[in-house]
């Protein structure tokens, strides 16, 4: 206190500090308002995002290095075992695919008979998940592709077993995606067995979703597979989402308590597939080696 009085100008006590605070608070509120409303600030976000990119790479590098190290020091024996396992798996998958091709042809014929629009194959691209923690307020992950690779906001992410989430913030080099388990995430699904349509909402727990709008009398039971219905316009139809874990019907309540377990390994995925469905915006990176098509 004594030292502050000895000085002529003390910026820490001047009214200018309070004024500057007010100005900055005002600026923050304007920024938040605009950012919440529209996408006008995407370019600002992208510009700063490029500056953050080296840090993300730096954080990701040790994990990547560790997995590279463990890959390159695996014994020959283990590699052979792994190779054998993969060969068997490939054989099984191919065998299943043969049947699937026939079914697809049959499906196209039936659709033609019904005059329905035939389904177009979706373009996909594999993206790696960076070991970077993002937003503490939501279930999200960071992937190593951005608008440079044709990624767009709202793009669907799947892994080998099912839907993982969707892109919410597209950067130039990296993007942030929201998992389906986030409390703010809702996904239009249908029961694969009978086509019952409903909505799967995240619970904030990585291993469970809830279906809040299933009426008590609906035909749904534990073990039912839920697939995307394609109604929201974000996710292409037909990708597995979750398996119904439990159905509790409470008399006098309009809706049943239904919880489901996500099909994708949300907590453990290292690689995801981005989907460009037909008619969606964006431009699939066809020329990249990782690009392909979902059969």
């Amino acid at each position: 206190m004594v030292t502050s009085r000895q000085e002529n100008i003390n910026p820490t006590r001047s009214p200018a500090l309070g004024l500057r605070l007010l100005a900055l608070i005002f600026l923050s509120i304007v920024l938040m308002y605009v950012d919440n409303r529209d996408n006008h600030l995407n370019s600002v976000r992208k510009a700063i995002g490029v500056a953050v990119y080296p840090l993300r790479v730096a954080v990701d590098a040790p994990v990547r290095f560790w997995s590279w190290l463990s890959d390159s020091t695996t014994s020959r024996n283990e590699l052979e075992l792994e190779l054998g396992r993969l060969r068997v798996e490939r054989l099984l998958t191919k065998a299943r695919l043969q049947r699937f091709n026939a079914l697809e042809a049959e499906n196209a014929r039936l659709r033609a008979l019904l005059d329905a629009r035939s389904r177009v194959r979706d373009a996909v691209r594999v993206a790696e998940i960076m070991s970077v923690d993002a937003n503490p307020f939501s279930h999200s992950l960071v992937i190593n592709v951005g608008s440079r690779d044709g990624v767009f906001d709202g793009q669907a992410l799947v892994d080998a077993d099912g839907v993982v989430g969707q892109v919410i913030k597209t950067g130039l080099l990296t993007s942030q995606a929201m998992l389906i388990s986030d409390t703010d995430h809702a996904l239009p699904v249908e029961v694969n067995r009978n086509g019952l349509r409903t909505i799967a909402v995240g619970t904030g727990q990585i291993g469970s979703l809830k279906l809040p709008f299933v009426v008590n009398s609906a035909d749904i039971r534990a073990g039912d597979l839920l697939v995307t219905s394609g109604l929201g316009g974000v996710f292409p139809a037909g990708y597995p989402v979750a398996v119904v874990a439990s159905v509790t019907r409470i008399p006098h309540e309009p809706y049943a308590n239904v919880s489901a377990t996500p099909a994708a390994a949300l907590g453990q995925v290292r690689e995801v597939m981005l989907i460009w469905s037909a008619g969606a915006q964006g431009n699939p990176a066809e020329n990249s080696p990782a690009a392909g098509h979902v059969e």
Partner: peptide, 27 residues
């Protein structure tokens, strides 16, 4: 507090939160 505000903005981008959210709290 201007510096703190900019740091907050960088944090907002890296976390994917609303732009200005951490800036406001920091300043």
């Amino acid at each position: 507090i201007g510096t703190a505000w900019i740091i907050g903005l960088i944090l907002d981008v890296s976390q994917g939160t609303l732009l200005g959210q951490h800036s406001l709290a920091f300043c």
